[in-house]
Amino acid sequence: MMKLAGALLVLFAGTMIGYLQAARFAARPRQIRQLTHALQRLETEIQYGQTPLPEAIGRLAAIVQPPVSALFAEISETLSRADGTTVRECWDRTLRSGWSATSMKKPEMEAMLRLGATLGGSGREDQIKHIRLAMHQLQAEEVSARDEQHRYEKMSRSLGVLGAALVVIIML
């Protein structure tokens, strides 16, 4: 009876690990799309609204879903404090500390870090050019992420179940 209960727990745990990994593959393209949409809104805010950067980034936090919204909310909050932190420092610190909560990978973070280096420190037209460049880079990464999702999502679920089944067979 104990062996059966242990086998069921191992099977359940392995299956859940596979499904969680598959969910990360599915979440990455969605989060990149959210980030691209947020950058489009930021471009609009800078170009037409001429909204101050902390307020514009705060609005971005309101339109995207977690965990991406948490990054923008933290940046906006830090910039609003006016403690002498530059936009670049705040952007870098927040992205580096909060990026692990997202399903996105290093190429997306590097594109966002490059964008953060120019925001608030150059003219409006230059900032818009850098935002568009970051959006193009993110769109290319989204295509790559969708390919990766199609390739590995089903495999992750199957490997979770099959790996757990192998452990159960070895246990018995």
Rank of each mutant, 00 (worst) to 15 (best):
A26G: 06
G18F: 04
G58L: 09
K3N: 12
G163V: 09
R33G: 01
I128V: 15
I32D: 01
P52G: 14
M171Y: 13
L79Q: 09
L39D: 00
I17N: 03
Q21Y: 08
A62S: 06
Q137N: 12
L95M: 15
T94W: 00
L133Q: 14
M2W: 14
Q149K: 09
S76K: 01
V161S: 06
A111D: 09
Y48C: 08
M135S: 02
K154R: 13
A5F: 15
I32A: 01
A165C: 08
I57T: 03
V87W: 01
M109Y: 03
R24T: 03
L79H: 10
A26Q: 05
Q137Y: 02
Q50S: 11
R59M: 07
L53C: 14
P54F: 10
P54I: 13
P29T: 02
T78S: 12
T78A: 11
R33K: 07
A134D: 08
L166N: 05
A117Y: 07
F25Q: 04
E45F: 15
A5D: 14
Q127T: 10
R59I: 00
R88I: 01
E141Q: 10
G120Q: 05
S156H: 09
R146P: 08
Q149A: 11
P29L: 02
M104T: 06
Q40C: 00
P67E: 01
R33A: 03
R30F: 07
K3T: 14
R33M: 04
L162E: 02
S76P: 01
A23S: 13
E89G: 10
R114F: 03
A56I: 04
M155E: 03
I32Y: 00
L172S: 10
G160R: 08
L95I: 13
F72M: 12
A70T: 15
R132E: 15
G163Y: 07
R96A: 11
D83E: 15
R124H: 07
F72P: 06
I170V: 12
T118L: 09
M16N: 06
W99L: 05
E43G: 12
T85Q: 05
A73W: 03
T86G: 14
M112Y: 01
P107T: 06
E55L: 10
K105H: 13
L11V: 12
T44H: 06
T85D: 09
M16L: 15
G123I: 04
H130I: 00
L138R: 03
G58S: 11
P54K: 11
A22C: 06
G163E: 05
M1S: 13
L71P: 08
G98C: 05
L53Y: 15
H37E: 08
R33I: 04
K105M: 05
A140W: 06
L138W: 07
A164T: 08
E43N: 08
G116A: 02
G18A: 13
P54A: 12
E77H: 11
A27Y: 06
G6E: 11
G14P: 01
Q40Y: 07
T78E: 06
R41T: 12
H130V: 03
M2D: 15
Y152D: 09
I75N: 02
Q149C: 11
R30I: 07
L79I: 14
W99E: 11
L115T: 01
Q139H: 03
L11R: 04
M171K: 10
Q50N: 08
P66A: 14
R41G: 01
L60R: 08
F12N: 07
L35G: 10
A62V: 09
A56F: 02
